[in-house]
Design a protein around this nucleic acid. Sequence first.
DNA 1: CAGAATCCAACCGGATACTG
DNA 2: CAGTATCCGGTTGGATTCTG
Lengths: 118, 118
Amino acid sequence: MKAVVTVASDGRKSVAEPCLEPCPIERGMRVLGGKWKGSILWHLKDGPVRFNDLTRQLGGASKKMVNQRLKELEAAGLVERRVLSTRPIAVEYAITSFGRSALAVLDQLREWSETQGI
Amino acid sequence: MKAVVTVASDGRKSVAEPCLEPCPIERGMRVLGGKWKGSILWHLKDGPVRFNDLTRQLGGASKKMVNQRLKELEAAGLVERRVLSTRPIAVEYAITSFGRSALAVLDQLREWSETQGI
DNA sequence: CAGAATCCAACCGGATACTG
DNA sequence: CAGTATCCGGTTGGATTCTG
């Protein structure tokens, strides 16, 4: 079994062991599912967003929460973290091309939710 | 705020408060996302499946787990529970037309997972 | 601004044993 | 067969405070 070690933008390594679920639905859910992850990705589709802006746009998610999910998304390669050299520091998060490939799925989920009145 | 009270097949009431998230992605995820929920739905697409069969097919999910998720899916109207009058008792779970409407989303998730090698 | 650190209650989910 | 009951360690996530 080969673990996937990812080096995040802050230099720390995270060990994301590959999801061994036989069901592709389940594997996909582990990446896109869960609280906030899909929404975060969705909110980045029109361009990079700053950390605090993102937190506010999600309305109801704590900073801690958003930060955790962002790290997971970054480790999975769906999102990119960029530090802007300003004072005070600004950080923006951008969706990667891989992340963008997931938007089709999310868009259908959005459509489903809306047409079904969820 | 109006809570949605559902009466399950065992007669017990469950109070599923409506998801108030402004983001449709998030609302959809609360219904389809989370561990095993998508997979369960997916495994019912070709016809009703018995409880123990389902548990085995998911491989790795405990009975307790599957049962909980099934109750949630039933409360949300995606799945129907049918008791077959046999000895010993048999129970099968079938996907509803509403549940079937979600299969398109799940199928795209499956395709995404597979093409992206997830 | 963008987090990190800490505390803590609530929930989750596995294991096991039991039931009609 | 299809659950329920109980125990229990681990994780989650909110609130709050602190920092470069």
